[in-house]
Simulated assay, not measured.
Amino acid sequence: MSENRTERNKAVVLEFLTTAFGSKDFASLDRYVHPDYVQHNPFIPPARAGLRGFIAGLPDGTRYEPGAIIAEGDLVMVHGRYSGGPGKPLLGVDIFRFEDGLVVEHWDVLQDEVDAQDTVAGNPMFTNPQTTGPA
């Protein structure tokens, strides 16, 4: 897979996550996510329509902040923060699989964010190494 395609896949994931979760603008989600994509999150209904409905039902003010992002082959993985909903912000590692330029599959691992002062190491659980550099 070419570096250009890998970079495009990363840009697609960042665009649809930030616009869909941040402003409920679904244009990029509708453009880049396959209608029948496979959803592995146990709380989100299947296919693109299920993801769209799930996001549409989130409280206004919900947002997504991307952190570290890596891609290899047809996979893109991004560490990010989901905030603005009920409860603590969630940190997630989302994994997306592309096929023919579209997102066709998604997995995630989510956990509540713990404030840095409450962690044993005293380090934040979320940073963006693309803008802040190493901790």
Rank of each mutant, 00 (worst) to 15 (best):
H34C: 06
L91C: 00
L110H: 10
V103L: 12
D100F: 04
G133V: 08
G50V: 00
V103A: 15
P129V: 08
P35E: 10
A27R: 15
Q130N: 13
P66C: 05
E113Q: 01
N4H: 06
I95E: 07
T131E: 15
D100T: 05
A56I: 01
G85C: 09
K24R: 13
G92T: 15
L51P: 09
F96N: 13
P86A: 15
D118S: 14
T131K: 14
P46H: 07
T19A: 11
V93M: 13
G92H: 03
P66K: 03
N41Q: 08
G133K: 07
E105K: 11
T62G: 08
I70Q: 08
S23Q: 12
E113G: 00
F43P: 02
T62H: 11
K10A: 04
D36Y: 09
I69E: 11
V38W: 04
W107A: 00
A47R: 14
N123R: 14
E99P: 05
G50I: 00
Q117W: 08
D94L: 08
D25K: 02
G122M: 04
F16R: 00
V33F: 03
L58P: 09
A135P: 14
R5C: 01
T119W: 03
E15M: 04
G61K: 03
G101P: 11
L110E: 15
S28I: 00
E3H: 03
I95P: 09
A135S: 09
H79R: 14
A135D: 07
P86L: 10
P42G: 03
D74V: 01
G61N: 04
H34P: 03
S23V: 02
N4W: 00
A56H: 05
D94P: 11
T132I: 07
H79D: 12
P129R: 14
S28T: 09
T19H: 10
N41L: 06
P124F: 10
D118F: 12
V13H: 01
L75P: 02
F16C: 00
P59Q: 02
G85P: 04
D36C: 05
L58W: 07
V114F: 09
S28V: 01
G87R: 01
P86Y: 09
S2P: 09
W107H: 02
A135L: 14
V33Q: 03
R48S: 09
I95F: 12
D25W: 02
W107F: 04
E99Y: 05
A27P: 05
T131A: 12
P59R: 02
S83N: 10
I44K: 01
G85W: 08
G50L: 00
E65K: 11
